[in-house]
Computed example of a mutant assay.
Amino acid sequence: MRALPVDVPIVLGPFGGLSSIELTATVSELGGLGSFGLYGYDAGRIERTVTALRKRTAAPFALNLWLPRGDELSPDDSEASFAATVEALRPVFDELSLELPVRPARYLPPFGDQIEAVLEARPAVVSFVFGVPPRPVVDAAHERGIVVVGTATTVAEGLALQEGGVDVVVGTGMEAGGHRVSFLRAAEDSLVGLVALIPQLVDALDVPVIAAGGIADRRGVAAARALGAAGVQVGTAFLRTSVSAATDEHRAAIVSTSADGTVLTRAMSGRLGRGVPNRVLREIEASGVVAPFPVQNWLTGRFRTVASERGVADLQGFWAGQASLLTRDRADAEAVFAELAAGLSVPPRAP
C-alpha cells in the first residue's frame, strides 16, 4: 500500500486560485505535504509552476486537480443566458469601471492536457477533487511512482474512491472552507460533519484516511487522530498566514469570523462552497441570478481579481472554514505547523 511521502502527517489544503509557491514549499520543508491547486491552469502554466516549486524546494509536494463532472456546461449555457448573468452583475463591473466581459471560447483548459502535464512533472503526490479519477490515470500515476489521493464527503464516496484505486482518501467534513467536493449526490445532500464522517470512513476503508474540515490547532489534530485518521489536511489556518496568496482583506475576514459566521453559497462559482459573506455575495444571492459552474466562477473572477488588486474587500471572495477564529493568533506558517504537530502525540484509533 502506497502512503504519503511525509515525516509529519500534516497536509496543506490545495487552494484553487490561492495556492502559493512559498506556502507549499514551506509546509513540505517542515516535513508535511505541501499542496498546490491547479484549478484553471493550462499545461504550460503547470510546467512553470512545477519548475518554480522545484527551484524553491527539493521536498515532496502534491499537485491537485479538479475532475470534470460533466455538468460544466449546462443546456442553459447559451449566449442569452450568459448575457443575462452579465447584466445581473453589471453594477459590480460598473463600480470597478470595468468593461462587461465577453463570452469566452472556453472556460477551463482541457482536463486531458492538465493530467498529461502533471504526469510528466512526476510530483510525489497527485490529489483529485469532485470525483474518482479515471483508472488509466491512476495506473499511469502509479507507474510513475506517484501516490494518488481522492477526496470524499461521504462514506459512499470513500468506497468509490477506494474501488477506483486511490491510495489515500481525504475525508472532508461540512465544516471545511471552500467548495464542497461532493460527487455522488448533490452537495446539499452530502453535508456530513467531520466527527461523524471520519470514524465511519476509517471503519469502511482499507486505505489511510486524512481528516479535513474544522481543524486549526492541536486539539483538532488530536481529535482527528482519536477518530482514526492517519493525518490531517488543513486549509484555512494556513490560508491566514502571510505566505499564502490570500489578500490582506481575506486574512482579516478569516480572523474576524466566528464559527457561525460563514455561509454555504453558490453565488461566487455556481457550486456550493463555504466562505465569509460580504456585500457582493449578498447582492448576487438577492438577485437570484447565478449561472452554473464554471460560468459563474469565470464571470465573478473577472471582478474578484481586480477587487483583490485594488483592496476592495466588499467585492472579493473570501473562502473560509468554521474554525476560522481559531487561527487569529498565528500569522506565521511555521507557527501554524508547530501548533498542529503538537496534536500528533495521540495515536490513531485502530478501525
Rank of each mutant, 00 (worst) to 15 (best):
F293H: 11
L281T: 11
A25Y: 06
T57K: 01
R45Y: 10
V148P: 04
I10D: 01
T247V: 08
V181G: 13
R69N: 10
P75V: 06
A224T: 05
L191T: 09
E339K: 08
P60L: 03
A224E: 00
G231D: 00
V192Y: 10
A237K: 04
A253P: 13
E120F: 12
L227E: 04
A124P: 00
R180P: 07
A176Q: 01
G171A: 05
E143I: 09
E116V: 13
S19K: 07
S78E: 06
E309C: 10
T247D: 02
V126S: 04
A226K: 10
A105Y: 08
P123C: 00
N297S: 14
S19V: 10
E309T: 15
R218L: 13
A58Y: 07
Q200L: 11
V92H: 14
E79K: 11
A156K: 10
L12T: 01
F82Y: 14
T257H: 05
A246R: 03
A186Y: 12
R328A: 15
F303N: 09
E163I: 14
P208Y: 02
A176D: 01
V118R: 01
E175W: 07
S256G: 15
V129N: 11
P101G: 02
V312P: 12
L65Y: 08
A141K: 06
D113Q: 15
G171N: 01
L98W: 07
G301F: 04
S244T: 04
G173P: 11
R304C: 15
V202D: 07
M268H: 13
G44I: 06
L325R: 15
R225H: 08
L325N: 07
E249V: 12
S269M: 13
L299M: 11
V147L: 05
R266E: 13
P101E: 00
A286F: 02
M1G: 14
A43G: 09
A323L: 01
V232G: 04
A245K: 06
A223L: 08
V166E: 05
A246V: 06
V232R: 03
T241N: 00
V232I: 06
A342S: 15
V102Q: 15
E175S: 05
V336Q: 04
R279G: 12
E334K: 15
E283S: 10
F293R: 05
E188I: 14
E163L: 12
E47N: 09
V168I: 08
A196S: 15
L4N: 07
V27T: 01
R251E: 02
V155W: 03
V202N: 05
